[in-house]
Write a protein that binds this DNA or RNA. Structure first.
Lengths: 246, 246
DNA sequence: CGGTCTCTTGAAATGTGTCAAAGGCCGTGG
DNA sequence: CCACGGCCTTTGACACATTTCAAGAGACCG
């Protein structure tokens, strides 16, 4: 899954300028950041960090999708986070990382070496405040996911994942999500299974079942068409349109 | 499950002074906090906030245990967080709360009305910095739990929960956890099930199985004795002593 | 056009849930 | 002091969803 990487020179051109950890920064703060930032790119499938690695840098996803996964000694894998453009990767004040971080698609990162970034948090409050907000949002998302993992059926899990991606895609495109939506699944069946705590066979079966019931259809393996998002949301087990639509 | 509530007048007597959101504050900052703080107590079983409630205050757990739970429309329940002494409850910059918060034991809170606290975060950086640290730790814990929920068997789930509580108890008592430990389970079987994504019957069966295998024994229903913590850890499916022991 | 990888589908195995009943603990009231 | 009722927990039998094991289909690439 190749995605053209944005070409940029400075922060004002940056596609995630108003969503990333730097979004609250004024011009002065931004130029401080600009001095220490650097870009890195990864190909789909490449591992950005291995669990246990020294966390030499932190940064923002500029484009692409990366996953955080934990692996048990016997090989069972659970995805514990999905990093999308503008999401922050790594954490200050921690020298090692405890999950693998893998580029699910081609990924471009805006990086800061960890130490200088930590100092920057102390000196420029807006970065710390924004990072707190983003971390709280991630915590909410993680908790939402705990409900999915702990209590939902396989069909509800798949519907939840597809709805989440559909909602996000629709909102990026500034469209009312009520009518039909289509999007490209940025992850493989295996990644879906690892995200949802299911085997790939179960993922496949439930995808087929949703298709048979007319809730989704495919265009190829990855392009998903959702003719009626509300109908799909009804399959998630959550409150109908649980606050998403309005 | 009753716990005697600490009697205090000011922050310097506070049992969580060096762990809570205020732990980085100097004297000046502390007296600012002191002016706006107030205490509240709840009986075991009482709900502190209902999902959807207006978040009028935030605060720290001074003593006791509270849980965060989400409930699906059909009644399925998943616990998404367990708040222990010094943990922070609520979040700044969010007007409503999306989980129920329930006192699992008698609970004492140190509260701040939300608005003044939000202002305080902007003015006293140490509070915000500490809150960021604590939130990042919670996020790590939530991710750890996603692995438990998504990929572990019932037996491994129970072993993970018991190990976690045993480790924490041992470290509070400043004891090497290697040899025997005993502790009081602060939660009911139902709460265990809700935490682990299991029914109470499965919890009960697995507890019995662990007992039959000599990994734990009971003294009453709630007092748990762990003769050999490493043996219990080996049942969690994680790396043997995964960084906990040292 | 053969090889590899991902995905789909089928049949059987199994772990956990569901339904049901009984046991233990504890406070209340006779 | 004992009996009663309520609540939490345990245990059993059976049902069922998901996993496991296995084979085949489809897509992509050299």
């Amino acid at each position: 899954m190749n995605i053209t990487l944005p070409k940029m020179k400075n922060c004002s051109d940056c596609p995630i300028r108003y969503n990333a950890v730097c979004s609250k920064c004024d011009e002065a703060e931004l130029s401080e950041l600009e001095e220490i930032k650097y870009y890195r790119t990864y190909d789909a499938g490449q591992t950005i960090f291995f669990a246990g690695d020294d966390l030499e840098f932190v940064g923002s996803i500029v484009s692409g999708v990366a996953s955080l996964t934990r692996t048990m000694p016997d090989g069972r894998v659970q995805m514990v986070g999905l990093l999308l453009p503008s999401d922050f990767m790594g954490r200050p004040n921690r020298t090692t990382i405890e999950s693998d971080i893998v580029a699910e698609t081609d990924v471009m990162l805006c990086c800061f070496r960890r130490r200088p970034f930590e100092k920057l948090i102390e000196s420029t409050p807006h970065v710390g405040q924004r990072l707190l907000e983003m971390t709280l949002d991630e915590l909410d998302a993680a908790r939402e996911w705990m409900l999915v993992l702990g209590r939902k059926t396989a069909r509800e899990k798949i519907a939840s994942l597809l709805s989440m991606i559909a909602m996000r895609t629709a909102s990026l495109q500034m469209r009312k999500p009520t009518e039909g939506t289509e999007f490209i699944l940025p992850i493989t069946r295996e990644a879906m299974g690892n995200y949802l705590g299911l085997t790939i066979e179960t993922v496949s079966r439930q995808m087929s079942a949703l298709k048979k019931d007319g809730l989704i259809s495919f265009d190829g393996k990855r392009q998903i068409i959702v003719p009626d998002l509300e109908a799909l949301l009804a399959e998630t087990g959550d409150d109908s349109d649980g606050g998403f639509l309005n």
